[in-house]
Amino acid sequence: MARGKIQIKKIENQTNRQVTYSKRRNGLFKKARELTVLCDAKISIIMISSTQKLHEYISPIITTKQIFDEYQKTVTADLWSSHYEKMQEHLKKLKEINRNLIKEIRQRTGDSLNDLGYEQMVNLIDDIDNSMKLIREKKYKSISSRIDTSRKKLRNVEDIHRGLALQFDARHEDPHYGLVENEGDYNSMLGFPHGGPRIIAVRLPPGHHSHHHPSLHSGTGASDLSTFALLE
Rank of each mutant, 00 (worst) to 15 (best):
T76N: 14
N100M: 15
S49N: 06
I43Q: 00
D111Y: 15
A77V: 13
D115I: 14
L101P: 00
E85C: 06
L116D: 03
K103N: 14
E89R: 08
N123S: 14
K31T: 12
D78P: 01
H55D: 11
A77E: 14
I61K: 10
Q52D: 13
I102L: 14
N123Y: 10
D40C: 04
L101A: 09
G117A: 05
L113P: 01
K93H: 04
I62N: 02
V122Q: 10
T76F: 04
D111Q: 15
E104F: 02
A77C: 08
T76C: 09
D126N: 13
D126C: 10
I61D: 06
R108A: 11
T36C: 14
L113W: 09
N114Y: 11
K31L: 15
L91D: 03
V122D: 04
Y71T: 12
K31S: 12
E96Y: 02
I43T: 00
C39W: 03
L91A: 09
R99N: 09
L38E: 11
Y84S: 12
T64Q: 11
I48N: 00
L54Y: 05
L91N: 02
E56F: 15
L35D: 04
A32C: 10
Y71P: 00
G110L: 05
Q88W: 03
G110S: 04
I67W: 02
V37D: 08
E104S: 12
K93L: 07
N26S: 13
R136C: 06
S50A: 06
K95W: 01
T74Y: 10
I62F: 04
L28E: 02
I105W: 03
K138I: 09
A32G: 02
S82F: 08
E96M: 04
T63Q: 04
N98W: 05
K139C: 10
Y57D: 03
E137G: 02
I97M: 07
K139P: 00
S81C: 05
P60F: 05
K42E: 10
K31P: 01
E119T: 10
E96F: 01
R24N: 06
R136F: 10
H55R: 04
R24I: 12
F68I: 15
Y84L: 15
T64S: 05
S50D: 09
L113V: 13
Y118S: 11
S59P: 02
T51M: 05
I102E: 14
T64M: 10
I46F: 07
N100R: 15
Y57P: 01
I135C: 02
E56I: 09
F29W: 03
L35A: 14
R108L: 12
I97G: 01
K103Q: 15
L38G: 00
R33A: 13
H83L: 15
L94Y: 01
S131P: 00
G117L: 07
K139A: 14
G117E: 13
K23L: 12
T36I: 15
K31Q: 14
R99D: 12
K31G: 02
V75R: 06
Y71G: 02
S131K: 07
F68N: 04
Y118T: 13
T51D: 14
I105K: 12
T63P: 01
L91R: 01
T64R: 11
F68Y: 13
M121F: 08
E34Q: 13
K103R: 15
N98M: 11
S81F: 07
L116G: 01
Q52P: 00
S81R: 12
L116T: 04
T74R: 06
S59Y: 03
C39V: 05
I46P: 00
I61C: 07
N100D: 15
I45F: 03
K30C: 05
Y118R: 11
Y71H: 08
K133I: 13
